[in-house]
């Protein structure tokens, strides 16, 4: 593994694994103080963290990836099917917060639909809208930029220009805005878990809050903060990788 990647991982620890570990330790201490099994409590918190991560990360990555491509496509003339998808996502973005989609998903599950795909869709769609909204203006700007005129003047073909100039330019703001999308997705995940009675961190937090238990909610909150940091780090690592692949790669 390259040294920079290791260093980057170490840099992110205070904001990622440390809060999660602290949350687990607190859960253990609280359970131990009231005479319950501390180990079970800590294990429960970690399991909930893993569940929420599995719920959020794939939806977020898939949503942001597809949204970014659709948004970039929408910035490309002439109008095409993919472009219209991007436009639709951009227009629908503010209409579709994750928690509202979670409620719709809950409604569908009550009438017999499968929970997992709906939960993922409820989290992926807002991420896609957000990514499309960021990618489209960046793509349009790249297509009218001085750099594009330079590439034309230097005789590069459209494919090279699109791959090495326009696409990286369109994806850059999406990876930059990944942290915001991750926060929205965590809020949406809390609604999904709470409404569908799924065993995630959000449900843990809200259940503890409902009964007014600080000692129950605090570990969950710390783990959620760590999870937010983890997703942010994931986003920046992904951004770096994408930049290497699209910008610098052959």
């Amino acid at each position: 593994m390259p040294r920079t990647a290791v260093r980057r991982l170490i840099d992110t620890l205070p904001a990622t694994l440390l809060p999660i570990a602290a949350g687990a330790a607190l859960a253990w201490a609280v359970a131990w103080a009231v005479g319950l099994s501390g180990l079970d409590a800590a294990r429960g918190l970690l399991a909930a963290t893993a569940f929420t991560l599995l719920l959020v990360a794939p939806a977020l990555l898939l949503g942001a990836g597809l949204g970014a491509l659709a948004g970039a496509w929408a910035g490309l003339p002439p109008h095409s099917g993919g472009g219209w998808t991007g436009r639709a996502l951009i227009a629908a973005g503010p209409l579709l917060p994750g928690f509202l989609l979670a409620a719709l998903a809950a409604l569908a599950v009550r009438s017999g639909a499968a929970a997992a795909p709906l939960a993922w869709a409820a989290l992926a769609l807002p991420a896609a809208c957000h990514a499309a909204r960021l990618a489209r203006p960046a793509m349009s700007a790249a297509l009218t930029s001085d750099a594009l005129r330079m590439a034309e003047g230097l005789g590069l073909d459209d494919r090279t220009v699109l791959r090495h100039l326009a696409l990286p330019a369109a994806l850059a703001p999406v990876t930059g805005g990944f942290a915001n999308a991750a926060l929205s997705a965590l809020a949406g995940a809390t609604a999904v878990e709470s409404l569908l009675d799924l065993p995630g961190l959000g449900a843990l937090l809200i259940d503890a809050a409902r009964v007014g238990s600080l000692s129950g909610s605090l570990p969950a909150l710390m783990a959620l903060c760590g999870l937010a940091g983890l997703l942010r780090a994931l986003g920046s690592a992904l951004g770096g990788w994408l930049q290497r692949v699209t910008g610098a790669g052959r």
Partner: peptide
């Protein structure tokens, strides 16, 4: 060859690779 106004290349891609693209292309 036209060196366009502003002197901007693809902002993120290392210069060496862009040079290799252009020279290789021609």
């Amino acid at each position: 060859l036209l060196i366009a106004q502003g002197g901007r290349l693809a902002p993120q891609r290392p210069l060496a690779l862009q040079a290799a693209d252009v020279i290789g292309h021609h």
